[in-house]
Amino acid sequence: MTETRFGYLLPTRDQAVSGEHAPHRLIEYAVRAEALGYDSVWAGDSPITRQRADPLLVLAAVAQATRRVELGTAVLLPALRHPILLAHQLGTLDRLSGGRVIAGMGAGFPTDATRAQFTALGVDFATRGRRLEESIEAMRLLWTGEAVSFKGEHFAFEDVSVAPPPARPGGPPVWLAGGGPALRRVARVADGWLPYPPEHGVYAKEAATIRETAQRPVTPALYATFCLDDDPERARERLRKSIERYYNAPLEFIASIQAMFAGTPEDAAAWLNAYVAAGARHIVVRFATGDHGAALEEFAGRVRPLVSAEVRS
């Protein structure tokens, strides 16, 4: 039997949108999530397109304030960074946290805004997928702690080592976002899968594809957004306000490509159980709310107890 685990996405983007800029409050949320029994805490990445506090710096602070929760990135864009520097940062964070890092990564969603971010940083957007794969390969070499060499299409170095090495032998597990054509990459190089398909039936089909083709064990996760309220109509309107401010795009469009729920805690649990039955084993929760403290408690107290705790592997 495999336990269903739950993670919490820190509202780094929400703070930037509201102009709050209070990183210390993010750390308080992380500490509260650990106390409430969440299994992981996550931070997103987007230096320009959807501005927010730097995820690795935030998680370094969380590492010192917590003892148990895993620390994940949802998700990093390695194509924007050199793999030597990123391997050094992630390795140091893993050492600092005692081996609790999950390196969630993605290539970057194909939108004009994301393309502009790559352009601003001098990276060819068309090469982002290959850069992602080269970065993973190079970082895994560097995480051995030995002097290594690498030669790819976009990155190359000779006789390089970084210190300190990660706490975990081989480095943090790498989880990849994406569905559809990206599943081939997940099956080929990932330790975990962090998608957000809006339909559990799609999740089930893609999870089966990964199970059948993966070259290593892959943790099936889910990134999902929740707006909880005992009044479903009010929940939907609150979700709309939050999402349209977050993405500067209509809710209907975002909801057509991302897993989102607005309604009562009981209905949220039933919705989540369909994904668990489809194979999801680690649920990363994003709250569409202005009160994350209350949302953390409500989800832990009214949703999580109704979600299947153990499922067959």
Rank of each mutant, 00 (worst) to 15 (best):
T73C: 13
R81H: 15
A35Q: 15
P78W: 08
L77C: 03
G19Y: 02
A22I: 00
G98L: 10
L71H: 01
L59M: 09
D45T: 09
L121P: 02
A87D: 09
F109H: 13
Y29V: 01
P83R: 05
R25F: 02
L93Y: 02
H82F: 11
E20T: 14
I84V: 15
I102Q: 03
D112M: 12
P55A: 02
G104M: 04
A43V: 00
G108N: 02
V58K: 09
G37A: 03
L96G: 05
P83I: 08
T66R: 12
D94V: 04
A120L: 15
R25T: 11
I84G: 10
D94C: 06
Y38R: 00
A33G: 07
A22W: 07
E20W: 11
R32T: 12
E34R: 12
Y29I: 03
G72Q: 07
V17K: 08
A35W: 11
R115I: 05
G72K: 01
T111N: 04
T49C: 10
R52M: 10
I48A: 12
D112V: 12
G91I: 01
D94E: 04
V62R: 04
R95Q: 14
P83E: 09
R115G: 05
T66I: 13
E20F: 05
V17N: 04
T119C: 06
T92A: 14
A22Q: 10
G106W: 01
L86N: 04
A35V: 13
H88E: 15
L96W: 01
D39N: 13
I102Y: 07
A35H: 14
G44V: 10
V41I: 11
G106Y: 11
L90T: 00
P78M: 02
S46G: 06
D112S: 11
I102H: 07
A43N: 05
V75F: 07
L86C: 06
V101K: 07
P83Q: 06
D39T: 04
A22V: 08
R50F: 14
L86I: 03
A43G: 05
I27Q: 06
G72E: 09
R32D: 13
L80W: 10
S46T: 00
A22R: 15
A53E: 14
A120K: 13
A120G: 03
T73A: 09
P83M: 05
G44L: 02
R25Q: 13
L90H: 07
V69D: 00
E28W: 07
A30T: 07
Q89V: 08
L90A: 10
G108Q: 00
L77V: 12
L26G: 04
A35L: 13
H82K: 14
T66Y: 08
G98A: 10
R115T: 09
A43T: 07
A107T: 06
L36F: 05
L90F: 09
L71D: 02
L56C: 01
A63Q: 05
G98H: 12
D39W: 01
F118N: 06
R100W: 08
Q51W: 13
G99D: 03
L36H: 09
H24D: 15
T49F: 12
Y38I: 12
G91V: 08
V75P: 01
S97F: 01
L26N: 03
T114K: 02
G37T: 04
